[in-house]
């Protein structure tokens, strides 16, 4: 792509404007990265510790899937296995409400600034989700049996 290089140089030279209220220094996240690295190192190390230190005595019964001693049924779950619908439903509901939270948080931070308008909006927002919620509830989407 011949036009890419000039574009990139230009973008690289574009001054990055700094909105005052945005903490823009990525270095703030450095401790998080350090923590992640340490935690990961610890976890991997621990996970590798088992095979290194522990004994390894092969036994056919050991590596069979555990099913309370009955002959394991042949692979019902991986690949072609099916998961009860209720779990999908829960996943979908979770996404729905998770998204609601995504909006509630920023709103909550600046709710005072938004005042009555914010109240109206958030009320409409929650009501909208509420409609869906009522629907799911009444149609038995929240019932497990």
């Amino acid at each position: 792509m011949p036009t890419l290089r000039p574009l990139l140089t230009e973008l690289a030279q574009t001054p990055v404007a700094q909105p005052p209220d945005v903490v823009s220094n990525l270095a703030v996240y450095l401790p998080l990265v350090v923590m992640f690295a340490l935690a990961a190192a610890f976890a991997v190390f621990s996970a590798l510790l088992g095979p290194l230190l522990g004994p390894s005595r092969y036994n056919k019964a050991k590596v069979a899937a555990y099913e309370c001693g009955i002959e394991p049924s042949p692979q019902p779950v991986i690949g072609g296995g099916r998961v009860p619908v209720a779990y999908y439903l829960t996943a979908m509901l979770f996404i729905l409400f998770d998204i609601e939270m995504v909006f509630l948080y920023p709103f909550a931070v600046s709710a005072d600034v938004l005042g009555m308008f914010g109240l109206l909006e958030i009320f409409l927002f929650i009501a909208t989700v509420g409609f869906a919620y009522a629907y799911v509830w009444r149609r038995g989407g929240l019932d497990w049996n």
Partner: peptide, 11 residues
């Protein structure tokens, strides 16, 4: 715990 045998199922 680290000295226990690690078992990975065939499946």
């Amino acid at each position: 715990l680290p000295f226990k045998e690690q078992i990975i199922p065939d499946t």
